[in-house]
Amino acid sequence: MKILVCISNVPDTTTKIRFAEGNRAIDTTGIQWVINPWDELSLTRALELRDDPSNGIKSVTVAHVGNADSEPTIRKALAIGADDAVRVNAGSSDAYFVALQLAEVIRKEQFDIIMCGIESSDFNGSAVGGMIAESLGIGSVSAVSGLSISNNQPVMTREIDGGREVVAMTAPMVAIVQKGIAKEPRIAAMRGIMMARTKQIRVYEPVPAEPLTEVQVFEKPAPRAACRFIEPDNPAQLIDLLQNEAKVI
């Protein structure tokens, strides 16, 4: 079986977000780009599965839709251990556009398990994985917090509201993963970094696709009122404020 891990290239999660171009884009000066946290965990799990021969995973490929600027992030995924990579040479305009590009890559190269993160930490859309599956007319399981292979078939734990289920699905399928999928993201070792230099990144040109959404303008969240401090020996005052001022208890 072959696994594809879709990765998104996002600002480091501690970045102070600033805007540019009349607030229509974010200011990328000084931003450190990283693999989207979910995708890093998803890649880690894919590699764990590949590294145990009993699972019969032949290869782990990463795919990314982005301009050449994003190659360092792809190289990082290769350094962590992915076997090869695909880049679709286009700016990522919206989830629908990105999903159609990735679906096309999957049609061309054929994968059995396609892994996507539950969301990207920049757009927080939770859309790409499900869109890929629907474009290809294959099954998807969402909120996957565990993935293993049993009798050549993906078996997953999926989170449901207030519980969890164990589900199986015949490949090819899309697993949309979240917390729990792997414990800690795998880190690139020196040898991996050396090897990544020679690994292949196949570049495809995008297929025509019309984005369905467009950001008009960004704004900062409304500032919160300053914190009101209460003396530590007077918690009754806090309870009073919560009851009579905030009216939340």
Partner: peptide, 10 residues
């Protein structure tokens, strides 16, 4: 967007 650090008019 940006995990609560920005909001977009989409």
């Amino acid at each position: 967007t940006y995990s609560g650090n920005a909001f977009a008019h989409l």
